[in-house]
């Protein structure tokens, strides 16, 4: 039953993604990408990743939709109808897809408890957290303690990306806006 729901959600996500390729209204595209985020949050809950689902629901469906709508307001609302040759990209993705599928044939089947991913470091974190860290949420323990150095790097990336946006869009605010108004007269 659980597997059936998982597969159903997965198919719904794929269908939404395929709809995005053909729709030309950017507003609809942004809304559908929000739909993909919410559906994948559901999928993450089914696959036991509650923390990830939480983040995806807050970030993917919340902030990213707001930012994309803001971009539409600053640029344009529809994708222009420009004739392009779609055959080459189609051939490329079909070829790449077939190679990837060939690679998955040797993967362990979904949810197998003895797959390589479950038997090494992941199992060690589960076994050690209760004694060493004394907090119930293993994800937090790994995030902030066992792999704290990793997370420091991630926070720095977020910091740098934020800095980049502020520099690109002149988020220094009133000062740059005043200057622009003076230039225009």
């Amino acid at each position: 039953m659980e597997l059936a729901i998982t597969l159903f959600l997965f198919c719904a996500i794929v269908a939404t993604a395929i709809a995005i390729t053909t729709i030309r209204s950017l507003f609809a595209v942004v809304m559908l990408s929000g739909v993909i985020s919410l559906l994948s949050a559901l999928l993450f809950v089914l696959m036991d990743a509650v923390d990830v689902a939480f983040t995806e629901a807050a970030v993917g469906a919340g902030i990213s939709t707001v930012l994309m709508l803001g971009t539409i307001a600053l640029t344009s609302r529809t994708q222009k109808d420009i004739k392009r040759n779609n055959l080459i990209p189609l051939a490329v993705i079909i070829l790449t897809g077939l190679v990837l599928i060939d690679g998955t044939l040797d993967m362990p089947s979904f949810g197998a408890p003895d797959s390589p991913a479950q038997t090494h470091v992941g199992a060690a974190y589960i076994a050690r957290t209760a004694d060493e860290i004394h907090i119930p949420n293993i994800v937090t323990a790994v995030l902030a303690s066992y792999r704290g150095y990793d997370t420091l790097g991630e926070v720095t990336v977020v910091f740098t990306a934020g800095l980049g946006v502020v520099l690109l869009l002149g988020g220094m605010g009133a000062r740059s806006r005043k200057r622009r108004q003076e230039e225009e007269g």
């Binding site: 902030i63 707001v66 930012l67 803001g70 971009t71 600053l74 977020v158 910091f159 990306a161 934020g162 946006v165 502020v166 690109l168 869009l169 002149g170 988020g171 605010g173 806006r177």
Partner: peptide
């Protein structure tokens, strides 16, 4: 960072 990004776009 999220708030700064929002400010930058909304301004």
């Amino acid at each position: 960072v999220m708030l700064a990004i929002y400010y930058a776009f909304a301004a």
